[in-house]
């Protein structure tokens, strides 16, 4: 047994090294920057200044929650329908879901900018129909839409993957025992698909709350999220210390919300993969 642990350690060594160099050390650097000033001396100024950004944190979290909820509402029925289709149809639907993921997020977001702009495709069409142009870009709706559009595949895939593992005869058993569609959904499908929902929520919420590109382009510069502020501190103002402090707080918030999710889903998780 001892030999085996030793062997495991040897095999695991490169990964431990990798994790140390590319995850742990950068994290420590972020912490270091957060608590130092531009001259490198220890200070709590960055932490004190954080209170200026309270509103931005609030907006970021609210928008991300909205995007996550909308994604969930759209993705859940889609994933269910997809998991009950024939194998071939499932594969086609899967490719359609994944297709946007193969394109750069930048290009996708630029395209949406083009579509939503004041002189964009939608408003040009409306103009030809004699309609006044709509304010689409630069609205919270546009930013939230951008998040949903970009991240919904990450909601669909985990839910679909859990749903396709539900034994069809278990669903038949529910019907057989007297469940109509709603009762079947609420008593069987929903609890059995909870793990997929939890990981979907995580995978949409985390990138949404830290995005800067989507809010920059579809917010038309009018909407600032935490990601934008961090980017500005580092790129425009060259203030790595403030940027690091903001990142650190964002990270802590994300970790806390993940822990909360885990706690919430912990019970239903247990004996799922029978």
């Amino acid at each position: 047994m001892k030999n085996r642990t030793f062997l495991r350690r040897i095999i695991g060594a490169p990964y431990v090294l990798w994790a140390a160099i590319f995850i742990v050390i950068p994290l420590l650097i972020v912490v270091y920057y957060s608590f130092t000033g531009p001259d490198g001396s220890f200070t709590l100024d960055n932490m004190k200044n954080l209170s200026d950004y309270g509103q931005i944190f609030k907006i970021s979290i609210l928008y991300s929650i909205a995007a996550t909820v909308i994604s969930l509402i759209l993705a859940y029925p889609f994933a269910y329908v997809m998991s009950r289709k024939k194998e071939k149809t499932q594969q086609i639907m899967m490719v359609l879901v994944m297709l946007p993921m193969w394109m750069s997020l930048l290009i996708l977001t630029y395209s949406w900018m083009n579509i939503l702009e004041r002189q964009g495709i939608i408003n040009t069409l409306l103009g030809k129909l004699g309609h006044a142009p709509l304010n689409l870009i630069g609205t919270p709706a546009a930013v939230i839409f951008g998040m949903v559009y970009n991240y919904i595949p990450y909601m669909i895939l985990p839910i679909y993957s859990v749903m396709s593992k539900i034994d069809p005869s278990v669903l038949e058993a529910a019907e057989d025992l007297g469940s109509g569609s709603f009762s079947k959904l609420y008593r069987v499908i929903l609890p059995l698909s909870m793990p997929g929902v939890v990981s979907g929520i995580t995978m949409v919420f985390v990138p949404s709350v830290s995005t800067f590109y989507i809010s920059q382009k579809l917010g038309d510069g009018k909407i600032l999220l935490v990601g934008d502020v961090i980017e500005r501190q580092i790129q425009a103002q060259n203030n790595y210390n403030m940027g690091a402090a903001l990142s650190l707080v964002l990270m802590v918030l994300i970790v806390l919300s993940l822990a909360l999710m885990k706690l919430f889903a912990g019970e239903s998780d247990e004996n799922l993969y029978v």
Binding site: D167, S169, V170, E172, A173, E175, L177, L192, S268, N271
Partner: peptide, 18 residues
């Protein structure tokens, strides 16, 4: 099925795992 007065024992039991 859910309105019929018959019940089924499935081949692989199909118990509710949760």
């Amino acid at each position: 099925a859910h309105k019929r007065e018959v019940n089924t024992i499935f081949q692989r039991y199909a118990l509710f795992p949760h």
